[in-house]
Amino acid sequence: MADLAVSANQEILKTSGVGSCLVVTLYDPVNKIGGMAHAMLPKDTTNEQGTPESFRFVDDAINEMISRITEKGGKIDNLRAKLVGGAKMFSLLADDEEGIGEQNISSAKETLNEKGISIESEDIGGTIGRRVEFNVGTGLVSVSTKM
């Protein structure tokens, strides 16, 4: 959680325990470079950049992934995004109209839209936790649940 990884080595990136958090994958299929972030909160309101140790905010995490992917030779025009998570695990925690999960999803869509990156697919919302695997070699994302 509050972390991200970028790879150009056809690895499989994994994360689990995704509840209201949001997992964002970005993939350049031409250069086979991809990244995955597991962020917990929608927007960084502190105007500070995330640190290398912690990418708690969806917007910071997406921006950092784009920067690391392009550093490795990926092209922003090639990038496609997938979104997983943003569940409402407890109705008690949705004290406003939107729970944190919904806000995380909105933040990701807004940030990706600003960068001109299209969302290829998504498995979002609901009330259950998810585990995510991202195959950087193929761009495929697999999602599992434990109900």
Binding site: G17, V18, G19, S20, M40, L41, A87, I100, G129
Partner: peptide, 19 residues
């Protein structure tokens, strides 16, 4: 409210709310 699911999914959601 009672929920049974992955520890990370439940606790991280609570942390996100409080934090």
């Amino acid at each position: 409210e009672t929920v049974t699911d992955m520890l990370g999914s439940t606790v991280n959601s609570i942390i996100a709310h409080v934090g």
